[in-house]
Design a protein around this nucleic acid. Structure first.
Lengths: 240, 240
DNA sequence: CCCCAAAGGATCAGCACGAGCCCATTGGCA
DNA sequence: TGCCAATGGGCTCGTGCTGATCCTTTGGGG
């Protein structure tokens, strides 16, 4: 008998589970994340069920199960008839997501992956010649963060970081950052809300966006790295 | 009617398909990639079906369908009885995978994502204090590349790059690099085999690994970036 | 020499999911 | 005022997938 429990990282990467869960769970997670990131602002309407189901590659039955769950949790509200639809509720959910226990290994995984993905995205975005729409998007998201209170800061921060990833114009990279953000949010849910360093974050955000808009990849990477280091320290501190 | 076909990268990232395909297809793809990367060397045995099914999070029936497909394609061979199992065949498959048509957008996506992930992984690996096993692994993989012919170069190259990712000790990052490699291999299948610059690649590989083993993150990143640029140019040239 | 553990091979019931279809509701528009 | 298009609500049927159970093969050890 060997005592090793199989510490082969290659095998672990290659033979990891093919599915993260059942269709319902994954759909629910996606929708939740989409709402958290403000794909539709409070009061706004989500795409019609038929469109959503098609985009998520899931049957309408499954999608509706997920929507019902969200409705019961108080995230959305459905209205029938023409010009009806599923609307995001403005009030916070009645059953806030209970913070899941965080494992140290997962924390380090998220921190490392985030550093790699997001500094890389910032660099890539700064390396491209951005079209006016993208430039405006970045400025808008930055401005939204600057004016945010503690309550809404995380959502706007997420949108800004997503915008940076999107500016790199690599769909897979954007998707990876979105997925990662979901994991990061789950970790952040488990630590007390800190409002102290929002101002500090805002300065860093501005520096990142300026470097990207100026087309300075090195600076964009460096500023993003410094920014991420703050969150990393926070996570390590609370979730040892 | 608006003419825009929905160019919202945030929505695209958040509402992308929940499943890449059915369980059989995904299982087949995983096994194929595992074999291509030499999870088990030719003549060696894959894990027992029950273990494999558990690790892939798939029923044994589905796993066996995938294994049968691989068997018919000539990749593996099954033997019954104790000390039996599913063995990787040494001969090349009878039905080589037909190269899929490559789309320019996908090529740029892979190139960008690869730059981000793999330069990031190299930097992260160089930033850690690597344990002796990992250091030896890196040296071994490097040596394997140096001695490879045209036929086997790609597999060994893939293993080296995977080893670098694994050295970063972030499972998600390793998984992401493995997934990316599958997409990259699909693109490389569509271009004629080039044997000319293997020597050049080997020098770059050595520089990357040296930087990692020396604990020099900047150098590791820079060397990896230069190395990846070569493949990127190759891909852009053949798959415009 | 025989038994048994470990592997692949096969089958079945049950459920989750998808595709398609129709119904119910609503507000704008002719 | 009535029609109609667009939306959510609900149903059924087919099937892919799972979990369990049992069978078959094979080689090593008692």
């Amino acid at each position: 008998m060997s005592l090793r429990s199989d510490p082969d990282p290659l095998a672990d990467a290659l033979l990891r589970p093919v599915r993260a869960g059942n269709a319902f769970e994954e759909t629910l997670a996606r929708l939740l994340q989409a709402i958290r990131l403000g794909l539709a602002a409070p009061g706004e309407r989500l795409p019609p069920e038929r469109d959503l189901a098609a985009r998520l590659g899931v049957s309408r039955v499954t999608l509706r199960e997920a929507l019902h769950a969200l409705q019961e949790a108080g995230y959305v509200e459905s209205r029938r008839g023409r010009y009806g639809g599923t609307f995001v509720r403005s009030l916070r959910p009645t059953h806030p997501t209970p913070p899941a226990p965080a494992f140290a290994a997962d924390v380090e995984d998220v921190i490392t992956l985030r550093h790699v993905l997001e500094t890389g995205a910032a660099e890539a975005a700064a390396s491209r010649s951005l079209d006016p729409t993208t430039r405006r998007h970045l400025r808008t998201r930055l401005a939204e963060c600057t004016g945010a209170g503690v309550a809404d800061y995380r959502r706007r921060d997420a949108r800004l970081h997503l915008a940076v990833a999107a500016a790199a114009a690599a769909p897979s990279l954007t998707a990876a950052v979105a997925d990662l953000r979901a994991r990061l949010d789950a970790l952040l849910d488990a630590i007390p809300p800190i409002g102290a360093n929002i101002e500090h974050s805002d300065h860093q955000h501005r520096a990142v966006i300026d470097a990207i808009l100026d087309g300075d990849p090195q600076a964009a990477r460096a500023e993003m790295a410094e920014h991420l280091a703050g969150t990393a320290t926070l996570l390590r501190g609370f979730l040892t």
